[in-house]
């Protein structure tokens, strides 16, 4: 399996996800099993491409930005589906489908070179867990961001329980990603933490979500402050993922691989 087959798998998945989202929106009940099944089938198609692509590349497809976008799309839809199954927010599948569509289109319109080479620094047992855990955290936080925006626009606190749970899970995975990265950095470069531009942005993102969690624990945060934190946290997360590459500071970053 090569990258050339991606548009076919992506189109099939997007069609299934769109059908799932439409089914959730049009259903008379608060939860539509059809929506869940269609979305899950789309996820299986997308996951099948990643598995076959992995086999074809003979290395984990986690090296380039395009490859991390693949995982983000998969996990974002997974997080959206699980949240829909648990809390029955019928519009959530539509929003996560739109966001996934953006990332999938970016991959189709701006294909990167996906060869088999994997530089020595990335040949580590930490590579797959570190990157997948981080991308999963990004997707869960993406879902929390969508809910926060919806709560902000509709001026309701209805989504707060779901946001809290997603942020809690996202923060656990964000910390797992950051700490596994620290252990890997010690093996590769000799230091657990080096204030590399990417690490600094990771620390900023982590602190913002920690503030959210502690504000909720102490019961001090107003809804607008909490939502603003989630929005800023999500923006920092995007900076940490790819935005940092466009900053002058990235010239000295040790996290540039593609």
């Amino acid at each position: 399996m090569t990258w050339n087959e991606f548009p076919w798998f992506a189109t099939a998945s997007i069609l299934l996800w769109t059908a799932g989202a439409a089914s959730a929106l049009l259903s008379k009940k608060s939860f539509s099993p059809w929506a869940a099944w269609l979305t899950a089938t789309g996820l299986c198609v997308f996951a099948a491409f990643i598995a076959l692509f992995w086999t074809g590349l003979q290395r984990p497809p986690l090296r380039t930005m395009g490859e991390t976008r693949l995982w983000y799309s998969l996990f974002l839809m997974l997080a959206g589906l699980l949240t829909y199954c648990r809390w029955h927010y019928r519009w959530l599948l539509s929003l996560s489908t739109v966001l996934t569509l953006v990332f999938t289109l970016m991959n189709i319109l701006k294909p990167e070179i996906h060869d088999q080479s994997l530089m020595p620094a990335l040949q580590s047992g930490w590579f797959v867990p570190h990157v997948t855990v981080y991308i999963f955290a990004y997707s869960v936080m993406g879902c929390a961001f969508l809910l926060a925006m919806a709560g902000w626009v509709k001026r309701t606190e209805r989504y707060r329980p779901a946001i809290d749970r997603l942020t809690c899970i996202g923060l656990a995975f964000l910390t797992l990603g950051m700490m596994s990265g620290a252990l890997w950095a010690k093996e590769a470069w000799g230091h657990f933490w080096g204030w590399d531009p990417k690490e600094t942005w990771a620390a900023a993102t982590w602190s913002l979500y920690l503030i959210y969690l502690h504000l909720r624990l102490s019961g001090k945060g107003r809804a607008s402050v909490l939502n603003a934190l989630l929005v800023v946290g999500f923006l920092c997360l995007q900076m940490c993922w790819y935005g940092v590459n466009y900053l002058p500071a990235a010239q000295e970053s040790m996290h540039v691989y593609s």
């Binding site: 590399d196 600094t200 502690h214």
Partner: peptide
């Protein structure tokens, strides 16, 4: 935590 976040944000935009 807020000070840590702000410090990291400032440094993220400037230098190490």
């Amino acid at each position: 935590m807020s000070l840590l976040a702000v410090s990291c944000l400032c440094l993220g935009l400037t230098s190490r």
